[in-house]
Structures are given as structure tokens and as C-alpha cells.
């Protein structure tokens, strides 16, 4: 492989990886607080992409406004899901909430098939994002640079929020001990709703960017990015925001580079992530940044 090709693939990998990372943050935040794998997270991503689609076509909004509306709507959906399907199960065994999450995920997917039809839809792409430019002999899309940049900014904002604001402090407290935090007068349910809102907004943002990069959307588009992002979150150490981003980047790099260097493996592409997951769980279940907790009686 030539150096140019390598650089090209490198940028592809960074783009894909930062998308995985953004989605993974939603998983890692919810898991850090509730110990729940939010299966519906990938579907929020899909909804975000669809909201933009309908915003620009049915409601004739300008693209930028449609993006903002879509992110807000997706965020509200995330909060609604928590209110209806997860909050009543806070005291229940953890697996019950997980089954509830699986049911919600299937509900959103099948409802989307009914409402939006299962046909893939083409997505509008603003021209300034998709006209390629040339640096030396490397052709790049503005999108390829913009996606990692936006992701970086969002992660920095989030880190600032979690470590330097009151709600962020409450989030960290809940993730340590939900009952004590409640006793200290924190409105736990509101903070959890906030967490779902932020996670869903990030998922919607990455869904919109995903749709720009792979410009076709369908009701099942969220499943695989969702699984892989979860794996990225586990790889980085679940509960850690930096870890989620790093895990996403590693996973994106592995997927793109493995296929680039060994094209004969391209059929197995979707299995890579799961193999990575099994290796991580086997050798270091707490991931790169995870904290080790011993089960107590």
C-alpha cells in the first residue's frame, strides 16, 4: 500500500472511529449511572437521521435548522424512553431493565418500519461538505475532517460539564452510589433524565453525520453502529468518557485498517468488533480506563 493510500485510510478510520466514540459516550454514561445497556441507543441514532430527513423534505426547513430540531427531538425521545421504560424498573433486577431496553429497541425499529417504510431513503448532503479538495495527492472531503473536529469539541464540552458543573458532579455521585446521592438531596431522576438527554443528543448528532458519510438511511441503520459503539465503550472501560472516545477510535482504526491491509477479510468485517469484545472481556473486562470493582456480599 502506498503512503497516500495509507493517509487516506487513516482519515477514514479517524472519521469512523470518532463516530463510534460519540455513540459510545451515550452508552458509557448510561451504563456508568444505571448499570444498564441502553439497547435503544442505536435506534436514537437512526431517529436523528430520519428527523433531519423529514425536517428537510416534509417541513422544508433549511438544513442547519433541521439538524438542530432533530437533535432536540432525539434528545426528548431519549428522555421519554427513560421515563416510560426504564424508570419503573429502577428497583427491579438489572436484567429486567435490559429486557425492557431490548423491547424498546425493537419497538422503535418496527414502528419506524411502519411509519417510514423499510425502504432505504437518500439523504440530502450540503454541497460544501461533500466537494472534495486536494492536498498534494490526497483527496479529502471536508466531512472527513469535520466529523473528528466536531466530535472533539463535543467531547471537550461534555468533559467540562461532567467535571466542572453541579449537574456533572451529581452524575458522578450517582454513578458511585445512587441511594446515598438521593439522600443528600440530589434529584436523581432529573439527573438521569439529563444523562439520557445528553447521550441521545450525541447519538443523534453522530447519526446525522453517519447519514452524511453513508448517504442512505433505513430503520435498521442504527443496529450495527450501536453494537460496535457499545463494544468501543467496553474496550475503553465502561463508565469513562475519555475511554469511550479512545475505544471508538481504536475500533474504527482496526476495522478500516484490517480491511485495507487484508482485503480478503472484508466479508468478516462485522465480526471484528465482536472478536475484539471477547478478547477485552477475557483479558481485561474493565477495559482501558475502567475501575475494578469486587462483588461484595
Amino acid at each position: 500500500m502506498s503512503l497516500d493510500m495509507f493517509i487516506q485510510q487513516f482519515f477514514n478510520a479517524i472519521t469512523l472511529g470518532s463516530l463510534y466514540g460519540l455513540i459510545a459516550i451515550g452508552y458509557t454514561m448510561v451504563y456508568g449511572i444505571l448499570r444498564l445497556i441502553n439497547f435503544a441507543h442505536g435506534d436514537i441514532l437512526m431517529l436523528g437521521a430520519y428527523f433531519v430527513f423529514f425536517g428537510t423534505t416534509t417541513f422544508c426547513l433549511p438544513w442547519g435548522l433541521a439538524v438542530v430540531v432533530a437533535i432536540l427531538a432525539a434528545s426528548a425521545t431519549g428522555i421519554l424512553i427513560d421515563r416510560i421504560a426504564y424508570r419503573p424498573l429502577r428497583e427491579a433486577p438489572r436484567i429486567s431493565a435490559l429486557i425492557s431496553a431490548i423491547a424498546v429497541s425493537f419497538f422503535i425499529e418496527s414502528l419506524s418500519v411502519v411509519l417510514f417504510t423499510g425502504l432505504p431513503r437518500p439523504v440530502y448532503q450540503p454541497e460544501w461538505l461533500t466537494t472534495a479538495f486536494q492536498i498534494g495527492s490526497i483527496r479529502l472531503l471536508p466531512l472527513t475532517l469535520l466529523v473528528p473536529a466536531i466530535s472533539f469539541v463535543l467531547v471537550m464540552l461534555l468533559l467540562w460539564m461532567v467535571y466542572h458543573t453541579k449537574p456533572g458532579l451529581a452524575m458522578r455521585a450517582i454513578s458511585k452510589d445512587i441511594e446515598t446521592t438521593r439522600l443528600l438531596g440530589v434529584r436523581v431522576d432529573r439527573i438521569i433524565a439529563l444523562t439520557f438527554g445528553i447521550g441521545s443528543a450525541l447519538a443523534a448528532a453522530s447519526g446525522i453525520m453517519w447519514a452524511l458519510r453513508y448517504p442512505q438511511i433505513n430503520p435498521y441503520m442504527g443496529i450495527f453502529p450501536g453494537f460496535k459503539a457499545f463494544i468501543a465503550a467496553v474496550l475503553g472501560g465502561i463508565g469513562s468518557i475519555q475511554g469511550a472516545m479512545l475505544g471508538g477510535l481504536i475500533l474504527g482504526m482496526l476495522e478500516i485498517m484490517a480491511v485495507a491491509f487484508l482485503p480478503s477479510l472484508s466479508g468478516f468485517r462485522d465480526a471484528f468488533a465482536f472478536i475484539v469484545l471477547l478478547l477485552v472481556l477475557f483479558y481485561k473486562p474493565t477495559g482501558i480506563f475502567g475501575e475494578h470493582t469486587e462483588e461484595k456480599i
Binding site: R35, L36, I37, R94, I95, L98, F227, F230, I231, V234, G267, F268, D270, A271, A273, F274, I275, L277, L278, L281, F282, P285
Partner: peptide, 26 residues
């Protein structure tokens, strides 16, 4: 390898294995 895990991690890992089996079959 996977039964060392508990709870939801086990769920995700077995789900991953089912997916790997499917990819192998394809």
C-alpha cells in the same frame, strides 16, 4: 471464555458470538 462474565456482559458476549457464527456461515 464467556461464562466467566456475569449478567448483561454475558448477554452482549453471547449476542456477539451468535453474530460471529452468522458471519462465518455467510
Amino acid at each position: 471464555p464467556v461464562l466467566r462474565l456475569g449478567g448483561d456482559y454475558l448477554g452482549i458476549a453471547t449476542l456477539g458470538f451468535a453474530e460471529i457464527i452468522r458471519v462465518l456461515i455467510v
